[in-house]
Design a protein around this nucleic acid. Structure first.
Length: 490
RNA sequence: GGGCCGUUAGCUCAGUUGGCAGAGCAGCUGACUCUUAAUCAGCGGGUCGGAGGUUCGAAUCCUCCACGGCUCACCA
């Protein structure tokens, strides 16, 4: 960062002036006893006179975000993690130290202590007795009124975005609360949080292109995981009955308002449950999280109000397509399906199977209308190589995807625990991969071996945390819920 | 990767038909001891994203490039 300008040079000048007066503005020590919001809350009912008579001393630390200078007195606002509080700096109280205010800039981090009082407009304010420089800011902050709007700068210099745009900070605070609410919920239902490898020799558990890396000492290529599924199911074999992992996955695919190359996924597995149980359980999770974080189940999102009140409809995938007017013959006949898709201008790969064509039609035709929460259930077995078949129709699997706001937000199924069937399905995927399907699953012999030891019947689910946070914070882009989204180099 | 749009002072933005580069905030100097977008007076601040081209003359028109946004493709 070689860039400089007058404003930066002026601040460097103030820095050296301070050092020449034996003040190191990066070496202050200060231990605040209060935070801004805490003070506002604590004294909100204490009137002007009462506050004066109590003569309350306090200390806070934070960043100067506004200053209004009058010759022999100044007002400023200092911002800490909780909020802002006004400072009143008077020459006849600060004496010699008052001249140091000339070296103070918006953006500096200071510690102050003084007496609480109310101004004539009744604003709770600290009458400063002493202050200390804790960090000199050498770069000017964006404008006080319009803030920082440039999207590129907001993502590249998120730290500035967080300083000046309080609503941005709120989103990421909420993200933390959402994740905590999920952990609390799962832990209160007997789940253990585990950590499985992020570096896989065989990238499994999803259909996606992986990132590749290399381990020098072992002399092998490794892949960043695309999903933790196959490891979590090995833990079911090992005897854990309720496990979850809430962490990053990595997929080497396009970047968009709904996709970031690294994203956060919750996956959890419950022995002796099936996908029907998980649908109700999912409703409970969402209700718990939404009421904890935003205090309502009626969630504003864009132009819509999304009502998370359970129960949510459960619609078989093929019925959802029928309801949207996809003709029966397209649903039953592979050739007719392809012709119908092409007549609707839906791009179909040359080698695509009937199931894949139906999946494409679903995504194009049905998904955009799924605004209110709905479980789409019972997918073709070919699209779900890790899911258990339906007993009454072995061509379908016990699987659901949850759609909210026209996006897939969760994916779950009764887990396939038949090692023979699992091996056959892997072999079919390998065959598809040989034919050029880049995203077909890899064969994982050790996973099949694990199933051969016996995995209890279980249900498992993945929930896209970034998309959930988008929903609950009314964010239209995934980049608004990821602190440091991936961008091209400057 | 394709299409459309954008990039001007630290920030937010104007900039007419191609004719001297602008404002507000921020900054600097001065005045001001209850302001809160403080006020008043004055001052400084620009590689108009980059490189070419057309033209007497380009922030403005043309070409290419970079970055970003939206969108399509991709992504169960």
């Amino acid at each position: 960062m070689e860039d400089t300008n007058d404003l930066i040079e002026q601040r460097f000048k103030k820095l050296s002036d301070l050092r020449n007066s034996h003040i190191d503005p990066y070496n202050g020590r200060f231990n605040p006893d209060s935070q801004a919001a805490e003070l506002h809350e604590k004294y909100k009912d204490v009137g002007k006179e009462a506050l004066e008579s109590h003569n309350i001393n306090t200390s806070v630390a934070g960043r100067i975000v506004a200053m209004r200078d009058f010759g022999k007195a100044s007002f400023a606002h200092v911002q800490d993690t909780s909020g802002k509080i006004q400072l009143y700096l008077k020459k006849d109280i600060l004496n010699d130290k008052f001249d140091l205010i000339k070296k103070l800039d918006i953006g500096d981090i200071v510690g102050v202590n003084g007496r609480l009082f109310r101004t004539k407009t009744n604003e709770l304010t600290i009458e400063v007795r002493d202050f200390v420089f804790l960090s000199k800011s050498l770069r000017p902050l964006p404008e006080k009124w319009h803030g920082l709007k440039d999207i590129e700068t907001r993502y590249r210099q998120r730290y500035v975005d967080l300083i000046v745009n309080p609503n941005v900070k709120d989103v990421f605070t909420k993200r933390g609360i959402i994740i905590k609410a999920i952990r609390d919920f799962l832990e209160s239902h007997g789940f253990i949080e585990v950590e499985t490898p992020m570096m896989h020799q065989i990238p499994g558990g999803a259909a996606a292109k992986p990132f590749k890396t290399h381990h020098i000492a072992l002399g092998i290529d490794l892949y960043l995981r695309i999903a933790p599924e196959l490891y979590l199911k090995r833990l079911l074999v090992g005897g854990y009955e309720r496990v979850f992992e809430l962490n990053k996955n990595f997929r080497n695919e396009g970047i968009s308002t709904k996709h970031n190359p690294e994203f956060t996924m919750l996956e959890f597995y419950m022995a002796y449950k099936d996908y029907n149980f998980l649908m109700s359980f999912t409703e409970e999770i969402f209700s718990h999280v939404a009421s904890r974080v935003i205090g309502t189940l009626k969630v504003p999102y864009g132009d819509a109000i999304i009502d998370l009140t359970p129960p949510w409809p459960r619609v078989p995938m093929l019925d959802a397509m029928r309801q949207k007017g996809v003709p029966e013959e397209a649903i039953t006949d592979p050739l007719k399906a392809r012709q119908w898709a092409e007549s609707k201008k839906i791009d179909i790969d040359k080698g695509a199977s009937h199931a894949k064509v139906l999946d494409e039609i679903f995504k194009e035709f049905v998904e955009p209308d799924l605004v209110q929460p709905v479980f789409i259930i019972d997918y073709p077995v070919e699209l779900s190589p890790l899911a258990k078949r339906k007993p009454d129709n072995p061509e379908l699997v016990e699987r659901f995807e949850l759609f909210v706001a026209a996006r897939e937000i969760a994916n779950a199924f009764s887990e396939l625990n038949d090692p023979v069937d699992q091996k056959e399905r892997f072999l079919k995927q390998v065959e598809a991969k040989t034919k050029g399907d880049e995203e077909a699953h890899w064969m994982d012999e050790d996973f099949v071996r694990a199933l051969e030891y016996g995995m209890p019947p279980a249900a498992g689910e993945g929930i896209g945390i970034d998309r959930l946070v988008m929903l609950l914070t009314n964010s239209q882009s995934i980049r608004d819920v990821i602190l440091f989204p991936q961008l091209k180099p400057e």
